[in-house]
Simulated scan of single mutants.
Amino acid sequence: MSTIPEPEPARPWRPEDGPGPKVWTWPKNDRPSLRVWSAGRWRHAPVVARQDWPDGTIAYQVEVDLRGDTTVVFRTYRWPQPGLRAGLPSGSEPSMDVVEGRAGGMPRRV
């Protein structure tokens, strides 16, 4: 039995949270990935977007097959959590809706 907890999904932004997060995206054919611990295995999860919240929180929206049955779902996870790991990097620079001297990117491998 594993001692790694499955990651907890993040709740979506709400207007009462204040300013919304800045969102980074990558080209669909060159997205980075995370590894998500689910159902006793590490699952490959391509990143759809990275969210940088005003309070410093980082969240990643991913596509992931949580049970290994080919049912792919979208989940957003706050980074870091024990049940998340950096996966494959992207060769492309991310783009953002509003760029004000901020740089996006994936977490470094541990």
Rank of each mutant, 00 (worst) to 15 (best):
P19R: 15
V47W: 08
L66Y: 06
Q81K: 05
D55V: 00
F74H: 02
G68K: 03
V47E: 01
D30K: 05
L88E: 08
Q61C: 03
N29G: 11
A49L: 04
R41V: 06
W53N: 13
H44M: 13
S92A: 02
R50V: 11
P27C: 05
D69Q: 10
S33Q: 01
S33I: 05
G40C: 13
W24Q: 04
K28Y: 12
L66H: 10
G68V: 08
E93K: 14
G20C: 11
A45H: 04
P82M: 05
W53Q: 13
L34A: 05
E63M: 00
P89N: 07
M96I: 14
F74W: 09
K22D: 10
W24L: 13
A86V: 02
K22P: 09
R78T: 15
S92H: 04
W24K: 12
V72M: 03
G20D: 06
G40Y: 01
R31L: 00
I58F: 15
P82D: 05
R78K: 07
A59F: 13
S33H: 00
G101T: 00
G18I: 09
L88D: 12
P54H: 03
W53I: 08
S95Q: 12
R75N: 10
I58H: 10
R85V: 00
T70H: 14
G83Y: 14
K28L: 15
T57A: 04
L84N: 09
A86D: 11
R41S: 15
P19V: 09
K28A: 08
Q61P: 12
V47T: 14
P89H: 02
P21T: 00
A45F: 00
G20N: 01
S95H: 06
Q61N: 06
G20M: 03
K22C: 14
A45E: 05
L88N: 11
D55I: 09
G68H: 05
P19K: 08
D69H: 04
L84Y: 14
D69V: 07
E63Q: 00
D17C: 02
Y60I: 06
P54C: 00
P21D: 03
L84R: 11
P27W: 14
L88Q: 01
H44F: 03
A49S: 10
D30T: 05
L34K: 03
P80A: 02
P80E: 10
T76I: 07
V64M: 08
A45W: 09
G40T: 01
K22V: 15
S95D: 07
